[in-house]
Simulated scan of single mutants.
Amino acid sequence: MRIQEFIVVEGKDDTIAIQRAVNADTIETNGSAISEDTLRRIEHAQQIRGVIVFTDPDYPGQRIRAIIEQRVPGVKHAFLTKDQAKAKNGKKIGIEHAADEDIRYALQNVYTTTENMPVEEITREDLMYAKLIGHPSAKARRERLGSILNIGATNGKQLHKRLQAFQITVEQFANAMHTIDQEENNV
């Protein structure tokens, strides 16, 4: 599988994992201390072939993603869940620990944020009703929702914005919540 866009990852081990799973060029941020030079390379890459941001599903990965998104509008995003990115010993999380098929799936299901496009509104009240905020099981339900919709894990404040940014429709949201409710009822 050949990926045309440059894939932005955090480090060398991530590049090795990406190139093991797909044929692609990467740009490494060298961790969360993303430099001005690296940001300029990402801007240039976006103009030439496009960019997919594929960072670890943790706080530093989200921070890098936000910095790039602010600086380089229109980049695409690929996500893995924490479970998919967990090392065999269960102690570390990173793209480099993911299975090839999970990496390929994430890269086949990328999102582009488009904050100015009108989309049916999923309200904060909808999130409360769906037990995604303000409920004892909210964190687990948000993680599962992020996995189903392939938008990554979020906290309660980020979820509403991410649903809008990735133009998740009310129908997609309802279908995902139905799946979560069915899974919980079958446990």
Rank of each mutant, 00 (worst) to 15 (best):
R2M: 12
R2W: 09
Q4E: 15
Q4G: 14
V8R: 04
K12E: 12
D13P: 04
D13E: 13
T15Y: 00
I16A: 14
I16W: 02
I16E: 13
A17G: 04
Q19V: 01
Q19F: 01
R20G: 01
V22G: 02
V22R: 01
A24S: 10
D25F: 09
D25T: 07
T26M: 00
T26E: 03
I27G: 02
A33G: 10
T38G: 03
T38R: 05
L39A: 05
R40I: 15
R41A: 07
R41N: 10
H44P: 01
A45N: 08
Q46S: 15
I48W: 04
R49L: 06
G50Q: 09
I52Y: 01
T55N: 06
D58R: 00
Y59E: 11
Y59I: 11
Q62I: 05
I64P: 04
R65G: 09
I67C: 04
I67W: 00
I68R: 01
E69D: 15
Q70L: 07
Q70T: 12
G74V: 10
V75T: 09
H77R: 06
K82E: 14
D83L: 02
Q84M: 11
Q84W: 04
Q84A: 11
A87H: 08
N89Q: 06
K91E: 14
K92G: 03
K92C: 00
E96K: 03
A98C: 04
A98S: 09
A98Q: 02
D100H: 08
D100S: 14
E101P: 03
E101W: 06
I103D: 06
R104Y: 04
A106Q: 09
L107D: 07
L107N: 05
Q108I: 06
T113P: 13
T114G: 07
E115K: 11
N116K: 12
V119P: 09
T123K: 08
D126Q: 09
M128E: 13
A130E: 06
K131A: 12
L132I: 03
L132T: 06
I133P: 06
G134W: 11
G134K: 12
H135I: 10
H135W: 10
P136Q: 08
S137T: 13
A138G: 07
K139A: 11
K139R: 15
A140K: 15
E143Q: 14
R144E: 12
G146A: 08
I148V: 13
L149A: 07
I151W: 00
G152A: 05
A153N: 11
T154K: 09
G156T: 06
K157W: 01
L159Y: 04
L159K: 07
H160P: 00
K161Y: 12
Q164M: 12
F166S: 08
Q167H: 15
Q167K: 15
T169K: 10
T169F: 03
V170R: 15
Q172N: 08
N175E: 14
H178R: 13
H178A: 13
T179Q: 15
I180Q: 03
N185W: 03
V187E: 14
